[in-house]
């Protein structure tokens, strides 16, 4: 007898495809947030599965902090071109130059500065919906997030006043100026993402695999040494993010587990060279994925505060 039965990855896939198609059908101007990271790589495959043989009916959007790993940018641009998608990039540098983003004195991370850039891009292109790769298993505040996450005209998330989501009926109705963030991978775990990458044979940027890199120790993490500052006519974009004399540089065999930018991504020492190696590592891991993210360590409620302000 034939078994009409889905395993857990097939179930997560069909759920995510359903959500992507709801977005295409119910919103006029959706965008898909694509950074080149592993979660958004899965989103692209799900978009292909949802919409082929048609074109993916939405542009890709990425917000650059200016501190990206060059490997990630190269990968992002190439994948967008291969899929025939329009890629829109907006940067924190532009936003600082035109005054819409104002750096806090002494703060070198540009993580929070992505918020006005993202909101600016939503306004510029009049996007009514942005699909993102966030997962509920990443962080406690995210565990309360909806698939369709309503944002008011200021881009804010109000966790106490979320729309109930019942069965597979998603309420995407908006008034002018409001928008929706949609997270098709809400129910995926880090392990599910890697198992899906394996099953679908998805290419990922090589920084996810073991390589030699110069690192230094700060805040309990191995941070990558930023690229050399060559253009003396401009200020060093990595000022403050370079190792001091008290932070010796070591060459280590490392990889990234989760990618923010170069100044907020902790490298993990790892010999994992293949997706199978990574799956083995994740299943034996004793630290959550976000444990290597400096941006989440700021306080217990760091993610909640950023999400309320309009973060991804």
């Amino acid at each position: 007898m034939k078994s009409y039965h889905l395993d857990h990855l097939e179930y997560l896939e069909t759920e995510a495809i359903h959500i992507m198609r709801e977005v295409a059908a119910e919103f006029e101007r959706p965008a898909l947030l694509f950074s080149g990271g592993k979660d958004s790589i899965c989103l692209l495959r799900l978009a292909e599965k949802a919409f082929r043989p048609s074109d993916i009916p939405m542009p890709f959007l990425n917000v650059e902090t200016g501190h990206e790993f060059p490997e990630l940018i190269e990968f992002r641009d190439r994948r967008a071109a291969e899929l025939g998608a329009k890629l829109i990039v907006r940067t924190v540098d532009q936003a600082i130059a035109n005054g819409t983003a104002v750096p806090a004195p002494g703060e070198i991370s540009r993580n929070k500065l992505q918020i006005p850039v993202l909101l600016g891009a939503i306004e510029e292109f009049r996007f009514d919906c942005a699909i993102g790769g966030a997962r509920r298993d990443e962080e406690k505040a995210r565990a309360k997030e909806r698939f369709f996450s309503f944002r008011d005209a200021f881009g804010q998330w109000d966790p106490k006043n979320q729309r109930p989501e019942i069965w597979n009926l998603y309420n995407g109705r908006l008034n002018p100026g409001e928008n929706m963030r949609v997270f098709p991978l809400s129910n995926w775990t880090e392990m599910d993402v890697w198992e899906y990458i394996k099953k679908e044979r998805l290419e990922v940027p090589n920084i996810y695999f073991s390589h030699q890199r110069e690192c230094f120790r700060r805040g309990g993490q191995w941070l990558p040494v930023p690229p050399a500052h060559t253009d003396a006519t401009k200020p060093d974009p990595y000022a403050g993010a370079r190792p001091t004399a008290k932070e010796p540089i070591k060459t280590l065999v490392v990889r990234v587990r989760t990618i923010a930018d170069m100044i907020s991504t902790g490298m993990i020492e790892s010999p994992a060279n293949t997706v199978d190696d990574i799956i083995g590592e994740v299943s034996a891991a004793r630290v959550t994925e976000r444990g290597t993210r400096a941006d989440d360590k700021a306080s217990e409620a760091a993610m909640e505060d950023r999400k309320k302000a309009g973060y991804f």
């Binding site: 309360k144 966790p159 775990t189 909640e304």
Partner: peptide, 18 residues
Amino acid sequence: GLRAEREQGITIDVAYRY
């Protein structure tokens, strides 16, 4: 997960765990 929940010892919204 939310600050108000920890401070007040209550759960505000449906939370999903894996």
